[in-house]
Nucleic acid binder design. Structure first.
Length: 296
DNA sequence: CCTTGAACCTGGGCGC
DNA sequence: TGCGCCCAGGTTCAAG
């Protein structure tokens, strides 16, 4: 599922019931996801208040009212579902809202926020996701976070940033954009989409869009703009629901309807005037979808 | 430093 | 209906 737009969509849904909530109970239904849960995971969460829910790259970070941060990653198939259990007097709807796929409900947070109970359920069929908890002051040096690159949201990703990151790089653009140490949060879908929008071939070597003196170029600017626009529009759309991605209320994202190239092998290139056909190639062991005619 | 391939795991789709 | 194969949004590690 989840690249930056999906994770950000999930973050926004979870923040509504998690920020300011007390964790009355945390329940793990097996000993591990991708990795074992940290020692005494449930015990360390019990009674804590979540002060803020943020995102870095594809990670969700729940700040607790002590020294700890709860780290959550959705892997390929993770999703969160929020069930409103209501108040003591007016029980909520969760008894008829439970997901069908309870076999893969691996973690349940029982939350109390401003007098309302909520269940936050983590479901992950493939279990490539994980949760961890570390002291907040170790976050910056944690190897998962220390080397993360620029966020493609906000204003920092511009042509000059692309030029600085890509100067001298021999890797193809596809690989460079997937490299979380350069730009953080892009995945297979949005890299394909951004390259199409920028009119750049995924096979072109990253260093070749930078000017000889290492400064920005039209191609750098176009790429920076394309990435930011694709990511922003995907977040607005609630992300892309191919298989597992759900908003926290159970509804589907709809950016998949806006794909120009991803999973559209054999279809005509949607660029006005372009007579190309979308091709699928394999780079770094993953599918790349592109138009060989207008992406150069 | 680079790239590639495999591994982790379940399930959906397809051809037969 | 079933079986085998390929594929899938991510990350990490080993090997060349």
């Amino acid at each position: 599922m989840p690249e930056l737009p999906e994770v950000e969509t999930v973050r926004r849904g979870l923040a509504k019931v998690m920020e300011g909530a007390v964790i009355e109970r945390a329940e793990t239904r097996r000993g591990d996801l991708r990795f074992p849960f940290p020692a005494n995971f449930a015990g360390r969460l019990k009674g804590r208040t979540i002060t803020a829910l943020s995102r870095r790259a594809k990670y969700l970070l729940a700040d607790l009212d002590n020294h700890d941060v709860l780290i959550m990653h959705l892997g390929m198939s993770g999703s969160f579902r929020v069930l409103d259990e209501g108040t003591e007097e007016t029980p909520g709807s969760f008894h008829h809202e439970r997901s069908k796929d309870e076999a893969h409900d691996h973690v349940v947070f029982h939350l109390m926020q401003r007098g309302r109970h909520h269940l936050v359920i983590y479901n992950d069929p493939r279990r490539f996701g994980f949760m961890d908890m570390i002291a907040r002051d170790r976050l910056a040096d944690d190897k998962r976070f220390a080397n993360l690159g620029l966020e493609p949201t906000g204003n920092s990703l511009d042509g000059a940033a692309i030029a600085r990151l890509f100067a001298g790089k021999a890797a193809p653009l596809k690989a460079a954009l997937l490299d979380q140490r350069l730009i953080a949060g892009l995945g297979n879908i949005y890299v394909c989409e951004a390259l199409w929008q920028a009119g750049l071939s995924p096979k072109r070597l990253a260093g070749t869009i930078v000017k000889a003196d290492g400064s920005s170029s039209e191609r750098c600017k176009k790429l920076a703009h394309a990435i930011r626009e694709v990511i922003a529009r995907a977040i607005e759309a609630g992300g892309s629901s191919l298989r597992d991605h759900r908003l926290t209320d159970g509804s589907l994202g709809y950016f998949q309807h806006s794909f120009k190239v991803y999973d559209r092998e054999g279809e005509p290139c949607p660029r006005p005037g372009c007579k190309g056909t979308i091709r699928r190639i394999v780079q770094s062991g993953r599918s790349t979808f592109h138009c060989p005619v207008c992406q150069r």
